[in-house]
Design a protein around this nucleic acid. Structure first.
Lengths: 213, 213
DNA sequence: CAATCAATAGGGCAAATGCCCCAAAAGCTA
DNA sequence: TAGCTTTTGGGGCATTTGCCCTATTGATTG
């Protein structure tokens, strides 16, 4: 039984989707959120969900931002973005935010069925055209303007970052850079603030994603 | 003028490719290497090349290993892999090694022309079918066989790894997977042993390097 | 010259981590 | 069935981390 949540502000479209999903025995719609905030609140209560069908345009918190939150906080949940248009910008934003599927709202029940099963088996359901665009985006982050985020790290902070990412602890980094562990700690705190992370794992991940190392 | 190098052991196919490329004015074939080693030797003398069309199967040093070397030593050079088959394993290996394009050997001159121009403009030329597979590979590394074999992580351990890499702590991971924090701790200890690391930062780094996430 | 920033360093403290120990249920397999 | 792995769960404990706080020195820069 695949547990599905729905985030869609248009109640007509939501009901249509629920009806389509209801045609299949192995789908269970756990809940239906009316916007991004509602979705996050609902997940806070119960995050035992496999797949979220997420409208890209919603009031309060849109699909892209909501997906960001979901994939950060509940990485086990797979997000399929719902949209009426398949423009490159939307695809780009969706993929960046962590969505792994992309469906047009007028999809047939069978297409939805296939997509959800594909995603549960580890696939990335999207049309070949969208896949092509997505791949280009993923493989060529240099071509995307806002991916080249500058965190404004100082020279020393970059050195500390590099060492931190190899798994060294404060003492070892201090020894390598011939400074005090307390200084290392200060540097790391500043790096955390600049890069908006709050622990090592997140930092290393972000550093790799943005090709800082 | 786009500078192209060719790495292809089959002289008949090589000549065919050179002929196809010769149809276009803005392509200049700088040299033709007969295997991976020959390619690296040639690049040692002259690395002023924009694109390498690389056969995936070559004696001495195959296309995947040669691409690894090239993208490590000459990151400005873009590699397009040539193949007769488009099996998932080949695509996976190519992407891992740093190739950003993937062409079937029977491609028409126009397809080759388009691909080379696309790669020069920052695209990732490949057929939609290949793009789909590649995307699945990139976005869902857990689905790739030999990644799991690498460190022999179990299914559950892979799930924990994924969550850990996003920066979640034991409690949050436990909540997401609906298990006890103690179990999460046990899993992580086992992952550490299997992957031969001793803290989160090292783990995240290794996971990224081996494209486990 | 004053202001800002980078780099240095320290204290305190709660929380998280890493590393031992152990054990049991479930599942597969030879 | 016996033996293996996986998944689950727990206790204890030293160390590390993350996050507050303050503070000095030197360089840059308007």
């Amino acid at each position: 039984m695949i547990k599905i949540a729905l985030a869609e502000d248009n109640s007509f479209l939501a009901q249509s989707l629920i009806n389509k999903l209801g045609l299949f025995d192995d789908f269970k719609v756990k809940f239906h959120a009316i916007d991004g905030e509602d979705l996050l609140a609902s997940l806070e209560l119960n995050s035992n969900v496999d797949v979220i069908l997420m409208d890209i345009e919603m009031p309060n918190l849109n699909g892209v931002l909501a997906t960001q939150e979901v994939s950060k906080k509940y990485p086990h949940i797979k997000v399929i973005m719902l949209t009426v248009v398949d423009d490159e910008q939307s695809i780009y934003e969706s993929i960046k935010s962590g969505a792994i599927g992309y469906l047009l709202k007028e999809s047939t029940p069978k297409e939805i069925f296939d997509s959800i099963h594909e995603i549960m088996e580890g696939g990335a359901p999207m049309s070949p055209e969208i896949a092509r665009k997505a791949l280009r985006i993923i493989q060529n982050p240099g071509g995307i303007e806002d991916d080249q985020v500058d965190f404004n790290l100082s020279k020393r902070e970059n050195e500390v970052l590099k060492q931190l990412c190899t798994g060294l602890n404060y003492q070892q980094i201090a020894a390598n850079l011939i400074i005090s562990p307390n200084t290392v700690r200060t540097h790391i705190e500043n790096i955390y603030k600049k890069m908006e992370v709050k622990n090592k794992a997140e930092l290393v991940q972000k550093a790799y994603k943005h090709r800082l190392i």
